[in-house]
Nucleic acid binder design. Structure first.
Lengths: 227, 227
DNA sequence: CCAAAAGTGTTGTTGATACACCCATGT
DNA sequence: ACATGGGTGTATCAACAACACTTTTGG
């Protein structure tokens, strides 16, 4: 990358979450250059002089995955003076939620390899990236209870049990099928489609989709996302 | 201040909340030097090379108020490339909760004047400080519903109605006295003292204090702070 | 017919809400 | 006596947890 356009001493690091079958996973990368060659870490990059941190995070994720318009939220700034040896670098942490069905790795100059890791099988990462990851998971668990951001991890059409398993994975709890159905349907956030699952070896489930317009209307009255 | 010890291009800005009688207020300052002379803004300063952002925020608040060991939480980094004209400066926002009874302004080299403003009477501030303040209020409203951080705004001993008025002010809602009492006492977070209000022109209320030890025990089981 | 997941129904308990009401104290 | 806030009691309603049950579909 062209360092002349970068802000000195400020980087962006991003935890990219995806949901696969029944498990919540994070995309980690091996860096091809710099002092961290060959070690796994969160996807990162420099903040450029003409962009905000949000724009930088969007750009950095796009450069690796070609994913556009993804859900993205700043965590906080990580500022321990010793977090990177030798230099003083402050990093601004982010997390994003992506739909694995849309995802495709793009060849990249700065990254050797990218790989999904289950959230309870994260290896030792560079710098303070384990701390950043832990914080991002905590933040995800909190946010998912306050707003329906979890839908960003699912394909457009999904069954109620897929949704329930997603919440179970993220929150690390078990939910009652019957009660979950009642509660989520009662919120009126979902639109039932005239479609069912295909090619499953059991009774096919109805498919639903999340409706952001309905969400906007409901959000003014306020409703509860505790599960 | 000695700029040779400062990290280039990174500042700290802090919204200091206090609770006075019945209103939630923020401490604003007029800067004595730099491009912002004479305008009101949040308390701010440079991040130093040998300190984390948390330490910097503690130091900056201490330098003005001599308050120590206060509740302090990072908001996020504000990074719009145009947020400060001329230079690229990223600021890390903070908010703190202080007990007005402990508070005393200290003479300061960098600040002409400091003044408490009611949260709905905030003037036009320098840079993006209005945005930072709005964010801090939102964050306070959210956090106060998840954990008993509001106690940091009160004196050590307080009545149940003082506490209720605090929540009403922060959240901008009205609460039912009877139901509030039941709910807060039911949580078992408060320790009833063998003391009553003095010199009030009505029946004296019992005083309570918040017990952090009890909170720690309860927090593991989880409990609900929605009001 | 069986396995597996989809989907419905029932019941007891808890907690929120909206009140009405009585108590203590200073002016 | 009355104003002001302190403090108690109660009836109603909505939400939740636990669990049993029926339905659909592929193999």
């Amino acid at each position: 990358m062209n360092n002349s356009t970068a802000v000195d001493g400020i980087t962006i690091d991003c935890a990219i979450f995806g949901f696969n079958k029944a498990s919540l996973e994070v995309l980690l990368v091996q860096h091809a250059e710099g002092e961290s060659i060959g070690k796994w870490g969160l996807l990162g990059g420099y903040l450029r002089k003409d962009e905000s941190a949000d724009e930088a995070a969007q750009r950095i994720v796009y450069e690796l995955t070609t994913l556009d318009n993804i859900y993205l939220e700043q965590l906080k700034a990580f500022t321990d003076p010793k977090r990177v040896s030798e230099r003083r670098v402050v990093t601004i942490g982010y997390y994003t939620l992506v739909n694995r069905e849309d995802y495709n790795i793009k060849a990249s100059q700065t990254v050797i390899e990218a790989k999904w890791y289950k959230i309870n099988e994260i290896p030792d990462l560079i710098f303070d990236h384990n701390e950043i990851f832990d914080f991002s998971l905590m933040q995800l668990q909190n946010r998912v209870r306050q707003a329906p951001i979890g839908f960003n991890l699912l394909p457009e059409k999904f069954t109620l049990l897929q949704l329930m398993h997603l919440y179970e994975e993220i929150l690390g709890i078990e939910l009652d099928k019957s009660n979950f159905r009642r509660k989520i349907l009662h919120m009126k956030l979902l639109v039932a489609l005239d479609e069912k699952q295909q090619d499953v070896s059991h009774r096919a489930a109805k498919l639903y989709k999340f409706d952001p317009d309905i969400y906007k209307k409901l959000t003014e009255k306020g409703f509860n996302f505790e599960f």
